[in-house]
Design a binder for these strands. Structure first.
Length: 479
RNA sequence: GGCCCCAUCGUCUAGCGGUUAGGACACUGGCCUCUCACGUCGGUAACAUGGGUUCAAGUCCCAUUGGGGUCACCA
């Protein structure tokens, strides 16, 4: 009885994939997956000034990285293509002519320049007035051979009402509208027309988009009515703003998917943070993708705008990195290796897998993880000067040497045995672990903060660990 | 300014007439501890204001205030 769900994400390829756009894509994607429906990706490139092929590629790559696969669209095709608007101009033209024929739209020969003059004149008289197309060509009978746009004939009275899946009933009086342009003089459709023709011909059943589009929805519903077609369900999402309440943009920090990828975020964590922005599921904060697909619904979407919180985002990312259920070891390794290699390190994935437990609970991003594991993959650790000067000093030479000697006698090079042997020595000499831990840590890792000392010793292997302790002792002795 | 939308801790939010107003992030005190983390126990912190409706309003209605969106041959 209910038709199969078909939703879409229709970005404009004018730059990067913005984190806010990802959120609207996500809500659509979740709805499709939850209902076994189709998720369509459509490229709205009718703004030829700003659209670029590079941007299309960035968007596709970002969507792929995020795991939001599309069932129809660029690269995968589908029965309702093409999925790029500039390849659909004939379809828009045909639909525009249909509206002209049925008297729902008309050719307007007013030029942009003429209208700009009229607009300026009005503003000059009354700065607060809003210019609206006066309907000059509305009832024009002649058809001069001049360039023209196609305008929609907005009903002069009545109103448009629809029930938004998030905001409930929305009523807008028609008197608030003007005869808007469907098709530019060069035959390229404007947003509202292209959007409606595409959604209609692509069989879209629900349109979910940002609240900044809510003003377009009444116009689009008029168009559906003009075509004699029932409009799809509508759902608007509250806006994600910058911490200061402005529109979220580059100047507020990272806003593109690519930046978060580069910073070592997980795609699941990105989606997890974004979904909780404007949607909730009781007290649950952390979700796997599967859980999201199951739990998502429109009823639990909030209506208030919100502000982006980078710290909470990082916390969600950290949560995903800590939890093997959310980030299995093999996934962890696959994502971490490129970041290690980016540091110029040569790494064996099997070895990476072995040392991940050392940093599971500590690393917040893969960049952070690579940094924390850096010392493992070098012959000589990168030495922090302050750490070296504070701990690799004459007073610690003996401890470092003896520790190396004690460890050397351990037959089984594993954490427990190494720790036991060390503790035995400490007990015998009435020493405290604190007396040797920091100097040893600096010797082994080059830093004052690291995973547990004996995890580190074990991970470095007999030769590596003993060598580092002894050469550090030399450095300390020379001071 | 017109039209539209919104309003619970600093932030994301739970709440769908009766709650000591809950959780998370952030901040913060203690515990744990070889560092850093993790973990754990605790703390500070919110219903914008004014009217109604009701035995009873964070929850319903109205107004005010505040915030946001949008007013193109951009999307």
């Amino acid at each position: 009885m209910s038709q199969a769900v078909r939703v879409r994400f229709a970005p404009s390829p004018t730059g990067y994939l913005h984190i806010g756009g990802v959120r609207t894509a996500l809500f659509n994607w979740l709805w499709a997956r939850k209902n076994g429906g189709k998720f369509v990706l459509r490229i709205e490139d009718t703004d030829q000034e700003r659209s670029t092929p590079e941007s299309v590629k960035v968007i596709l790559d970002s969507m792929t990285w995020l795991g939001m696969t599309w069932d129809e669209g660029p690269g995968v095709g589908g029965a309702f293509g093409p999925y790029t608007q500039m390849e659909r101009l004939a379809i828009y033209k045909e639909h525009a002519e249909r509206l002209i024929t049925s008297g729902k739209a008309y050719r307007c020969f007013c030029t942009k320049e003429e209208l700009d003059v009229q607009r300026a004149a009005l503003k000059a008289k009354d700065p607060k007035a809003q210019f609206r197309y006066p309907g000059t060509c509305r009832d024009r009978k002649d058809t001069p051979s001049l360039p023209f746009v196609v305008r929609f004939k907005v009903p002069s009275d009545g109103d448009i009402r629809y029930v938004d899946k998030v905001f409930g009933e929305v009523i807008t009086p028609n008197t608030a509208q003007q005869d808007f342009v469907l098709l530019r003089s060069d035959g390229v459709p404007l947003y509202n027309f292209g959007c409606v023709v595409d959604d209609m011909t692509m069989g879209i059943t629900l349109v979910a988009r940002g609240r900044d589009h809510m003003v377009n929805t009444p116009l689009q519903i008029m168009l559906y009515a003009a075509f004699g077609v029932a409009p799809p369900d509508m759902a608007h999402l509250p806006m994600m703003l910058a911490p200061n309440g402005e529109k979220l943009s580059k100047r507020h920090g990272a806003v593109s998917v690519g930046e978060y990828k580069a910073q070592g975020y997980s795609p699941e964590a990105v989606l997890n943070y974004l979904v909780r922005f404007g949607w909730s599921h009781g007290d649950q904060e952390v979700f796997s993708l599967g859980e999201l697909v199951d739990a998502f619904n429109w009823e639990a979407c909030g209506r208030g705008d919100g502000k982006f919180d980078a710290k909470k985002f990082l916390a969600i990312q950290h949560e995903h990195m800590k939890t093997p259920r959310l980030t299995p070891d093999d996934v962890y390794v696959a994502r971490l290796v490129p970041f290690l290699e980016a540091r110029g390190l040569t790494v064996d994935p099997a070895r990476v897998a072995k040392v991940i437990p050392m940093i599971r609970e500590r690393a917040t991003t893969f960049v952070d993880a690579a940094d924390r594991l850096d010392f493992v993959f070098r012959d000589v650790p990168v030495m922090d000067d302050k750490a070296s000067q504070k701990f690799l000093v004459a007073a610690n030479v003996a401890h470092l040497r003896v520790l190396a000697d004690v460890l050397e006698k351990v037959s089984s090079w594993e954490e427990k045995a190494l720790e036991d042997a060390t503790n035995a020595w400490l007990a015998e000499k009435a020493l405290n672990i604190k007396d040797v831990a920091q100097p040893a840590r600096v010797a082994l890792t080059g830093r004052t903060a690291s995973p547990g000392l004996f995890e580190v010793v074990a991970a470095l292997g007999r030769e590596g660990a003993l060598g580092r302790l002894r050469s550090a002792a030399e450095i300390a002795a020379s001071r």
